[in-house]
Design a protein around this nucleic acid. Structure first.
Ligand SMILES: [Zn+2]
Ligand SMILES: [Zn+2]
Ligand SMILES: [Zn+2]
Ligand SMILES: [Zn+2]
Lengths: 130, 130
DNA sequence: CTATCTTCTGACAATGATTCTTATTGGGAC
DNA sequence: GTCCCAATAAGAATCATTGTCAGAAGATAG
């Protein structure tokens, strides 16, 4: 597992700190706007590059909203999935050993190797259920 | 189950026929280019609208590639997922009753209602394994 | 500390998928 | 045929994301 070295820079620290303080999924555009709003000057391209590297290093989790926009969140380590409220955006991390073994089994049965998967559940949380 | 009525138009028929003949995932842009190439004149926006309505009606299946582009495929009916070769694009439809019940259970446990989910598995098919 | 090498950054241009706008067309019910 | 309204075409507009490239700032050796 080669985790490329990253230089500790003001910008990287700012993005990470903001993600920690937010604790929820947020798009690169939003993060950039918030950094601007709090006076921190960080370029938009830098926010994108930083998030991509953090995601590659496994420091943040990336998912795509239903309309294709990438959103990032500071996550607990380890493989997991999300249960997302499509109304208020509240997110719950979930784990499913059964799902993991199923994907492995189905992959092997079909001769696929080096697999990974994406799984997201969308619905209405209790607070948003009418 | 309200399935809105759709007018049978030349364009809609052309998109559907092409999807059937291809039998694989394809982006709106690609479909449009192919229609053009075979002499059929169909507007790009029309291809988008048609695909969206077909997806809404459950006539085609939509998924997003890792870079966020939407791709569509004429699929067998019923809920299922895909095992996709990240090298050659070969796709296998898979079903997982265990996964379905797991998502329902986990949703209920967390007070979520009206849920749906996305699940895709990516890997290397046997032909593409080195 | 200074020189130097390398990576990171910022401003802005460029890309590319998707949607919007508006005038026009063509199913389909009568 | 005639009328109504959804469907379409063409192109402009939107908007997230990426590319460019010169300059800034860590790291490292001397
Ligand atoms: Zn909610
Ligand atoms: Zn998983
Ligand atoms: Zn393959
Ligand atoms: Zn499913």
């Amino acid at each position: 597992m080669s985790v490329t070295f990253r230089r500790p820079t003001r910008q990287r620290a700012a993005v990470e700190a903001l993600l920690v303080s937010i604790g929820d999924f947020m798009s690169a555009q939003d993060l950039h706007a918030r950094l601007r709003a709090q006076g921190q000057s960080v370029g938009l391209a830098t926010v994108y590059r930083t998030l991509q590297s953090m995601a590659a290093d496994g420091d943040v989790d990336m998912m795509r909203t239903s309309d294709g926009e990438a959103v990032y969140r500071r996550c607990s380590n380890g493989h997991h999935h999300h249960l997302v409220c499509r109304n208020c955006g509240r997110t719950v991390e979930v784990e499913g050993p059964a799902v993991e073994s199923w994907t492995n089994k189905i992959s092997a049965e079909n001769g696929f190797s080096d697999v990974h998967h994406t799984l997201e559940i969308f619905g209405l949380c209790s607070a948003c259920t009418p």
